[in-house]
Amino acid sequence: MLVVGELINSSRKAIARAVAERDKEYIQDLARKQVEAGAHIIDVNCGTSIGEEDKVMTWLVNIVQEVVDVPLCIDSPSAEALAAGLAAHKGQAMINSITAEKQRWEEVLPLVQKYKAKVIALCMDDGGMPESVDDRLRVAGRLVPGLVEAGIPEEDIYLDPLIKPLGVNSQYGVEALESVAALKEKYPKVHTICGLSNVSYGLPERRLLNRAFMVMCLTRGMDAFILDPLDMPLMGLLKAATALAGQDEYCLEYIAAARAGKIKA
Protein backbone atom coordinates (compact mmCIF):
# COMPACT_ATOMS: atom_id res chain seq x y z
CA MET A 1 0.00 0.00 0.00
CA LEU A 2 1.51 3.29 -1.13
CA VAL A 3 0.86 6.48 0.85
CA VAL A 4 1.52 9.85 -0.79
CA GLY A 5 1.62 12.65 1.78
CA GLU A 6 -0.45 15.55 0.47
CA LEU A 7 0.34 18.40 2.86
CA ILE A 8 3.04 20.38 0.99
CA ASN A 9 0.59 22.03 -1.36
CA SER A 10 0.39 25.79 -1.75
CA SER A 11 -3.41 25.65 -2.07
CA ARG A 12 -3.21 25.35 1.73
CA LYS A 13 -2.85 28.79 3.33
CA ALA A 14 -0.03 27.81 5.66
CA ILE A 15 2.02 26.39 2.79
CA ALA A 16 1.31 29.38 0.54
CA ARG A 17 2.61 31.64 3.30
CA ALA A 18 5.66 29.44 3.92
CA VAL A 19 6.48 29.40 0.20
CA ALA A 20 6.04 33.18 -0.13
CA GLU A 21 8.32 33.75 2.87
CA ARG A 22 10.71 30.95 1.84
CA ASP A 23 10.20 29.41 5.28
CA LYS A 24 12.46 26.44 4.72
CA GLU A 25 12.23 25.12 8.29
CA TYR A 26 8.43 24.96 8.30
CA ILE A 27 8.27 22.99 5.06
CA GLN A 28 11.09 20.66 6.03
CA ASP A 29 9.47 19.95 9.38
CA LEU A 30 6.21 19.07 7.65
CA ALA A 31 8.03 16.77 5.25
CA ARG A 32 9.75 14.96 8.13
CA LYS A 33 6.52 14.58 10.08
CA GLN A 34 4.72 13.04 7.09
CA VAL A 35 7.46 10.46 6.56
CA GLU A 36 7.57 9.64 10.27
CA ALA A 37 3.79 9.12 10.15
CA GLY A 38 4.07 6.60 7.31
CA ALA A 39 4.20 8.47 3.98
CA HIS A 40 6.21 6.64 1.32
CA ILE A 41 6.22 9.58 -1.11
CA ILE A 42 5.87 13.31 -0.44
CA ASP A 43 3.77 15.39 -2.84
CA VAL A 44 5.11 18.88 -3.62
CA ASN A 45 2.83 21.41 -5.27
CA CYS A 46 3.36 25.15 -5.62
CA GLY A 47 0.71 25.90 -8.21
CA THR A 48 -0.19 29.24 -6.64
CA SER A 49 3.28 30.65 -7.39
CA ILE A 50 2.14 32.36 -10.58
CA GLY A 51 5.00 33.42 -12.82
CA GLU A 52 7.70 31.65 -10.84
CA GLU A 53 6.36 28.15 -10.34
CA ASP A 54 9.34 26.45 -11.98
CA LYS A 55 11.81 28.26 -9.69
CA VAL A 56 9.72 27.60 -6.58
CA MET A 57 9.33 23.94 -7.52
CA THR A 58 13.10 23.56 -7.80
CA TRP A 59 13.50 25.19 -4.38
CA LEU A 60 10.85 22.94 -2.83
CA VAL A 61 12.34 19.74 -4.24
CA ASN A 62 15.81 20.69 -3.05
CA ILE A 63 14.85 21.64 0.50
CA VAL A 64 12.54 18.65 1.02
CA GLN A 65 15.15 16.20 -0.24
CA GLU A 66 17.64 17.70 2.22
CA VAL A 67 15.70 16.18 5.11
CA VAL A 68 13.84 13.09 3.83
CA ASP A 69 15.08 10.17 1.75
CA VAL A 70 11.76 9.13 0.22
CA PRO A 71 10.82 10.00 -3.38
CA LEU A 72 8.75 13.07 -4.20
CA CYS A 73 5.61 13.41 -6.26
CA ILE A 74 6.12 16.42 -8.53
CA ASP A 75 2.62 17.87 -8.80
CA SER A 76 1.69 20.63 -11.21
CA PRO A 77 -0.57 21.49 -14.16
CA SER A 78 2.49 23.21 -15.67
CA ALA A 79 4.83 21.06 -17.76
CA GLU A 80 7.59 23.61 -17.14
CA ALA A 81 7.23 23.24 -13.37
CA LEU A 82 7.20 19.45 -13.70
CA ALA A 83 10.40 19.59 -15.74
CA ALA A 84 12.09 21.86 -13.20
CA GLY A 85 11.14 19.62 -10.29
CA LEU A 86 12.20 16.45 -12.06
CA ALA A 87 15.56 17.95 -13.00
CA ALA A 88 16.25 18.72 -9.34
CA HIS A 89 14.99 15.37 -8.02
CA LYS A 90 17.34 12.60 -6.92
CA GLY A 91 16.24 9.09 -7.85
CA GLN A 92 12.92 7.99 -9.31
CA ALA A 93 10.20 10.59 -8.85
CA MET A 94 6.45 10.38 -9.37
CA ILE A 95 4.64 12.76 -11.74
CA ASN A 96 1.18 14.10 -10.98
CA SER A 97 -0.13 13.88 -13.62
CA ILE A 98 -0.72 12.89 -17.22
CA THR A 99 -4.10 12.62 -18.95
CA ALA A 100 -5.39 11.49 -22.34
CA GLU A 101 -5.93 15.15 -23.30
CA LYS A 102 -3.88 15.77 -26.44
CA GLN A 103 -1.89 18.75 -25.19
CA ARG A 104 -1.23 17.30 -21.73
CA TRP A 105 -0.17 13.96 -23.21
CA GLU A 106 2.26 15.60 -25.61
CA GLU A 107 3.75 17.80 -22.87
CA VAL A 108 4.11 15.24 -20.09
CA LEU A 109 4.90 11.93 -21.81
CA PRO A 110 8.43 13.02 -22.83
CA LEU A 111 9.11 13.91 -19.16
CA VAL A 112 7.91 10.50 -17.97
CA GLN A 113 10.22 8.86 -20.51
CA LYS A 114 13.23 11.09 -19.89
CA TYR A 115 13.18 10.75 -16.09
CA LYS A 116 11.80 7.18 -15.97
CA ALA A 117 9.28 8.42 -13.43
CA LYS A 118 6.28 6.76 -11.90
CA VAL A 119 3.21 8.52 -13.25
CA ILE A 120 -0.33 9.21 -12.09
CA ALA A 121 -2.63 8.90 -15.10
CA LEU A 122 -5.98 10.65 -14.71
CA CYS A 123 -8.91 8.98 -16.48
CA MET A 124 -9.75 12.15 -18.38
CA ASP A 125 -9.52 13.16 -22.03
CA ASP A 126 -10.49 16.15 -24.13
CA GLY A 127 -14.14 15.32 -23.46
CA GLY A 128 -13.69 16.39 -19.83
CA MET A 129 -14.37 14.65 -16.53
CA PRO A 130 -15.61 11.05 -16.73
CA GLU A 131 -19.32 10.56 -16.15
CA SER A 132 -19.43 6.78 -15.68
CA VAL A 133 -17.44 3.62 -15.10
CA ASP A 134 -17.44 3.02 -18.86
CA ASP A 135 -15.99 6.49 -19.45
CA ARG A 136 -13.07 5.67 -17.18
CA LEU A 137 -12.45 2.32 -18.83
CA ARG A 138 -12.56 3.93 -22.25
CA VAL A 139 -9.95 6.55 -21.30
CA ALA A 140 -7.80 4.01 -19.46
CA GLY A 141 -7.91 1.98 -22.69
CA ARG A 142 -5.93 4.80 -24.28
CA LEU A 143 -3.72 5.72 -21.33
CA VAL A 144 -2.36 2.30 -20.37
CA PRO A 145 -1.51 0.98 -23.84
CA GLY A 146 -0.09 4.38 -24.80
CA LEU A 147 2.20 4.52 -21.77
CA VAL A 148 3.29 0.89 -22.15
CA GLU A 149 4.04 1.45 -25.85
CA ALA A 150 6.15 4.45 -24.81
CA GLY A 151 8.25 2.18 -22.60
CA ILE A 152 6.66 2.85 -19.21
CA PRO A 153 6.47 -0.32 -17.08
CA GLU A 154 2.94 -1.20 -15.94
CA GLU A 155 4.07 -1.18 -12.31
CA ASP A 156 5.02 2.51 -12.68
CA ILE A 157 1.52 3.51 -13.84
CA TYR A 158 -1.05 4.72 -11.28
CA LEU A 159 -4.56 5.11 -12.69
CA ASP A 160 -6.63 7.78 -10.98
CA PRO A 161 -10.38 7.25 -11.63
CA LEU A 162 -11.03 10.87 -10.58
CA ILE A 163 -13.14 10.95 -7.44
CA LYS A 164 -15.93 13.52 -7.51
CA PRO A 165 -17.61 15.17 -4.50
CA LEU A 166 -20.31 13.09 -2.88
CA GLY A 167 -22.15 16.28 -1.94
CA VAL A 168 -22.84 16.97 -5.62
CA ASN A 169 -24.30 13.55 -6.41
CA SER A 170 -25.04 10.78 -3.90
CA GLN A 171 -23.98 8.15 -6.46
CA TYR A 172 -20.45 9.45 -6.99
CA GLY A 173 -19.07 7.28 -4.19
CA VAL A 174 -20.56 4.11 -5.67
CA GLU A 175 -19.42 5.15 -9.15
CA ALA A 176 -15.86 5.58 -7.90
CA LEU A 177 -15.81 2.22 -6.11
CA GLU A 178 -17.13 0.40 -9.17
CA SER A 179 -14.55 2.19 -11.32
CA VAL A 180 -11.67 1.07 -9.10
CA ALA A 181 -12.83 -2.55 -9.25
CA ALA A 182 -13.26 -2.42 -13.03
CA LEU A 183 -9.85 -0.84 -13.60
CA LYS A 184 -8.10 -3.40 -11.40
CA GLU A 185 -9.85 -6.26 -13.16
CA LYS A 186 -8.83 -5.00 -16.60
CA TYR A 187 -5.29 -3.93 -15.64
CA PRO A 188 -4.15 -6.14 -12.74
CA LYS A 189 -0.50 -5.07 -12.99
CA VAL A 190 -1.32 -1.36 -12.99
CA HIS A 191 -1.85 0.50 -9.73
CA THR A 192 -4.86 2.61 -8.78
CA ILE A 193 -4.63 5.83 -6.78
CA CYS A 194 -6.85 8.73 -5.74
CA GLY A 195 -6.84 12.00 -3.87
CA LEU A 196 -8.85 10.76 -0.93
CA SER A 197 -10.29 14.06 0.28
CA ASN A 198 -11.98 14.84 -3.05
CA VAL A 199 -14.97 12.68 -2.08
CA SER A 200 -15.82 14.78 0.98
CA TYR A 201 -15.46 18.26 -0.50
CA GLY A 202 -18.11 20.67 0.79
CA LEU A 203 -19.46 18.30 3.46
CA PRO A 204 -19.18 18.51 7.26
CA GLU A 205 -16.81 16.27 9.25
CA ARG A 206 -14.82 15.53 6.12
CA ARG A 207 -12.28 13.32 7.84
CA LEU A 208 -14.98 10.82 8.80
CA LEU A 209 -16.04 10.43 5.17
CA ASN A 210 -12.42 10.21 4.00
CA ARG A 211 -11.68 7.39 6.45
CA ALA A 212 -14.75 5.37 5.53
CA PHE A 213 -14.18 5.86 1.81
CA MET A 214 -10.55 4.79 2.08
CA VAL A 215 -11.47 1.44 3.62
CA MET A 216 -14.16 0.86 1.00
CA CYS A 217 -11.72 1.71 -1.82
CA LEU A 218 -9.13 -0.67 -0.44
CA THR A 219 -11.61 -3.56 -0.55
CA ARG A 220 -12.17 -2.82 -4.27
CA GLY A 221 -8.48 -2.90 -5.15
CA MET A 222 -7.17 0.62 -4.58
CA ASP A 223 -3.51 0.26 -3.68
CA ALA A 224 -2.32 3.86 -3.32
CA PHE A 225 -3.75 7.00 -1.73
CA ILE A 226 -2.89 10.68 -1.69
CA LEU A 227 -3.84 11.64 1.86
CA ASP A 228 -2.98 13.39 5.11
CA PRO A 229 -0.64 10.99 6.94
CA LEU A 230 -0.84 13.10 10.10
CA ASP A 231 -4.45 11.97 10.54
CA MET A 232 -3.64 9.18 13.00
CA PRO A 233 -7.11 7.54 12.97
CA LEU A 234 -6.95 7.48 9.16
CA MET A 235 -3.52 5.84 9.18
CA GLY A 236 -4.66 3.36 11.82
CA LEU A 237 -7.61 2.34 9.69
CA LEU A 238 -5.32 1.99 6.68
CA LYS A 239 -3.00 -0.38 8.56
CA ALA A 240 -5.93 -2.38 9.94
CA ALA A 241 -7.74 -2.61 6.60
CA THR A 242 -4.55 -3.62 4.79
CA ALA A 243 -4.03 -6.43 7.30
CA LEU A 244 -7.65 -7.58 7.04
CA ALA A 245 -7.42 -7.57 3.25
CA GLY A 246 -4.57 -10.07 3.41
CA GLN A 247 -1.96 -7.56 2.22
CA ASP A 248 0.17 -7.53 5.39
CA GLU A 249 1.85 -10.90 5.93
CA TYR A 250 1.46 -12.04 9.55
CA CYS A 251 0.20 -8.49 10.27
CA LEU A 252 3.82 -7.43 10.70
CA GLU A 253 3.31 -3.84 9.49
CA TYR A 254 0.25 -3.46 11.69
CA ILE A 255 2.11 -4.79 14.72
CA ALA A 256 5.16 -2.59 14.07
CA ALA A 257 3.00 0.52 13.72
CA ALA A 258 1.12 -0.27 16.92
CA ARG A 259 4.33 -0.87 18.88
CA ALA A 260 5.77 2.37 17.57
CA GLY A 261 2.69 4.27 18.76
CA LYS A 262 1.82 5.35 15.22
CA ILE A 263 -1.72 3.95 15.37
CA LYS A 264 -4.30 3.69 18.12
CA ALA A 265 -7.93 2.71 18.57
Rank of each mutant, 00 (worst) to 15 (best):
S197F: 00
N198S: 10
V199I: 15
S200L: 04
S200W: 00
Y201N: 15
Y201F: 14
Y201W: 09
Y201G: 09
G202L: 08
G202A: 10
G202T: 08
L203K: 10
L203C: 12
L203F: 00
L203T: 13
P204W: 00
E205F: 03
E205D: 15
E205I: 05
R206D: 02
R206Y: 00
L208A: 15
L208H: 14
L209C: 09
L209G: 10
L209A: 14
L209T: 13
N210L: 07
N210Q: 12
N210R: 06
N210T: 07
R211C: 09
A212V: 09
A212R: 10
A212F: 07
F213W: 05
F213P: 00
M214P: 01
V215P: 04
V215I: 13
V215E: 11
M216N: 14
M216Y: 09
C217P: 04
C217I: 08
C217K: 08
C217A: 11
C217Y: 05
C217G: 08
L218K: 13
L218G: 02
L218R: 15
T219D: 03
G221P: 00
G221Y: 04
G221T: 07
M222Q: 13
D223P: 02
D223R: 11
D223Q: 06
D223G: 05
D223T: 07
A224N: 02
F225R: 13
F225H: 14
I226T: 06
I226Q: 10
I226W: 06
I226P: 06
L227Q: 06
L227P: 01
L227S: 11
D228H: 12
D228Y: 09
D228S: 13
P229V: 08
P229Q: 09
P229R: 14
L230K: 13
D231T: 11
D231E: 06
M232F: 03
M232L: 15
M232I: 14
P233I: 09
P233R: 15
L234C: 08
L234P: 04
L234I: 03
M235N: 10
M235H: 13
M235R: 13
G236Y: 03
L237V: 10
L237A: 15
L237I: 13
L238I: 05
L238H: 14
L238Q: 11
L238R: 14
L238N: 10
L238C: 11
L238M: 13
K239C: 01
A240W: 06
A240H: 11
A241G: 08
A241Y: 04
A241R: 08
T242R: 08
T242P: 01
A243I: 01
A243N: 07
A243E: 02
L244H: 09
L244E: 10
A245C: 12
A245E: 09
A245D: 05
G246V: 01
G246C: 03
G246Y: 01
G246W: 02
Q247K: 15
Q247W: 06
D248R: 13
D248C: 06
E249I: 07
E249N: 11
E249R: 15
Y250D: 05
Y250Q: 03
C251M: 09
C251Y: 03
C251L: 01
C251T: 06
E253G: 12
E253N: 15
E253I: 04
E253M: 10
I255M: 11
I255F: 08
I255N: 12
A256Y: 01
A256T: 07
A256R: 14
A257S: 02
A257D: 00
A258W: 00
R259I: 00
R259N: 07
R259A: 11
R259T: 09
R259Y: 00
A260W: 00
A260E: 05
A260N: 02
A260M: 02
